[in-house]
Design a protein around this nucleic acid. Structure first.
Lengths: 100, 100
DNA sequence: CAAATCCATAAGGTCGATCTAATATAAGAA
DNA sequence: TTCTTATATTAGATCGACCTTATGGATTTG
């Protein structure tokens, strides 16, 4: 089933928050750990989930790693949902052009 | 965090399949059980998850219950993702008007 | 080099999701 | 009413997600 890992990755409030925090602003693990007031191992574990889902990437910067969003994957997931639910609403006799 | 239950509901292949199967075609628990070759209790349990997330609804029809998609909730979730990621991609300097 | 910093990962425990098997409830059918 | 069908729900077991603690590897600094 498509995008199962991506949905699972989104199904956790901290991981949603991480994705929000990375909008337009790559951050290190320490930055994120401080911002969300959690432990460093927990942050690394959640970042691994997001990495395995392809939603974020990391770039070494000195002794740190700069985490950033993976636009391609996020956009692919968005497109999938868009097409999927547009089709759904069409079959239900709705007009998907007006947002609810 | 918004839509956490909805994302969790989508993070299971059977539940994704149920939503697909209900597109334009309300079905009974037995219909769905036969189609996905699973047990009836498992199907009812997953339908409960989808009901609690507001993604499906049920209408009594004789001794059965006809399950159907909840367009409003699906559309609300789609709109949330659309707005959220449109903002994300904008901050990343992308043009979200072209689908990937 | 040694020490400190940054991050990943492993081990251990807890809790919740999921499945199976059994039972309860409700609605037709005879 | 009695029997069958359809669905929900419970109890029990298993498995995986998640958190804490501790440790390992890599990089920078002194």
């Amino acid at each position: 089933m498509p995008y199962e890992d991506q949905f699972a990755a989104l199904a956790h409030p901290l991981r949603q928050g991480i994705l929000d925090a990375l909008q337009g602003t790559p951050m290190t693990v320490r930055d994120l750990t401080d911002r969300f007031d959690t432990s460093q191992p927990v942050m690394s574990q959640h970042l691994k989930v997001l990495r395995d889902a392809g939603l974020v990437g990391a770039t070494p910067r000195g002794a740190s790693r700069l985490y950033h969003l993976e636009e391609a994957q996020l956009n692919a997931l968005r497109s999938f949902l868009e097409a999927h639910w547009r089709n759904t609403l069409k079959k239900l006799g709705e007009d998907p052009s007006h947002d609810a």
